[in-house]
């Protein structure tokens, strides 16, 4: 029990003392996971809309694949991305292995299915007559998609939160393609693993509190946005 208090105290101290390394790690974590979430939105939201609305062959197989991929183990993603990014791999010439970009790529692969799945589910919850009504009112394609997005914004914000939550908390992919290189690719989760290996449980706990605080702060901000809009609807 004392370890938990010591870890908490150490976490507060680390943050207040302005230890540049802690800020560096926390900032990199936010930058990498935030960017990965944004990119996964760009890819996942249109994909989710498409899968929810359009009817085509193999749609069910594809939807099943997306739903399965929502639970992709980060270690597996890390392994696959590593194989592609290695010097001997097909994308080796880019020299991306052990860079923050490599982590972003892996995290995009983790978050995109989550965003796609959530988007798909929230669109399909809409009244099935709604798309036809929108079209009947003479909406252009752009207006049509925009109205659909607006109608399911709660679900979309949930998609953002789920995607962000998935990537900020993963360690397997960050370790595999980032390598936990100090001052370069060390993010909060990989730093925690290292500190545990070093036996510095209090520092590891401190970092875990920082990680949870960050995750909470971002999720809370999104929740505020989500719940404020709620009033207009009901």
């Amino acid at each position: 029990m004392d370890l938990i208090w010591r870890g908490l105290a150490r976490g507060v101290k680390l943050l207040l003392s302005g230890d540049p390394e802690i800020y560096e790690i926390a900032f990199l974590t936010l930058r990498v996971s935030g960017l990965a979430t944004l990119v996964s939105l760009v890819l996942g939201v249109p994909a989710g809309l498409f899968l929810a609305v359009r009817k085509f062959r193999f749609r069910r197989a594809l939807v099943g694949a997306v739903n399965t991929a929502m639970g992709l183990p980060p270690t597996v993603v890390g392994l696959w991305v590593a194989i592609f990014l290695w010097r001997s791999g097909p994308l080796g010439a880019l020299g991306l292995m052990y860079t923050p970009t490599a982590i972003v790529i892996a995290q995009v692969l983790i978050a995109t299915p989550v965003v796609t799945g959530f988007t798909m589910a929230s669109v399909q919850q809409l009244d099935p007559k709604l798309p036809r009504q929108i079209l009947a009112l003479g909406a252009s394609p752009l207006q049509f998609w925009w109205l659909v997005i607006r109608e399911c914004r709660f679900g979309l914000l949930a998609a953002v939160m789920a995607g962000f939550g998935a990537v900020i908390s993963e360690v397997g992919a960050s370790m595999a393609v980032g390598g936990n290189v100090r001052h370069h690719t060390r993010v909060l989760t990989t730093a925690i693993v290292l500190e545990v290996n070093k036996g510095n449980f209090d520092v590891a706990l401190a970092l875990s509190f920082i990680l949870m605080t960050l995750a909470y702060a971002v999720t809370f901000a999104l929740t505020v946005v989500q719940q404020r809009k709620r009033r207009y609807v009901t």
Binding site: L35, L38, V39, V42, G95, L96, M97, Y98, P100, N197
Partner: peptide, 30 residues
């Protein structure tokens, strides 16, 4: 937001993509 995301990712990739010459990758034991 979407535009910003695209812009940032392009910058990100170009920054970390070209800084490989002076890197030394050391594989070592735990």
């Amino acid at each position: 937001m979407l535009l910003a995301a695209l812009a940032i990712s392009l910058v990100e990739i170009s920054i970390s993509g070209c800084a490989t010459k002076e890197d030394v990758i050391l594989a070592t034991t735990t």
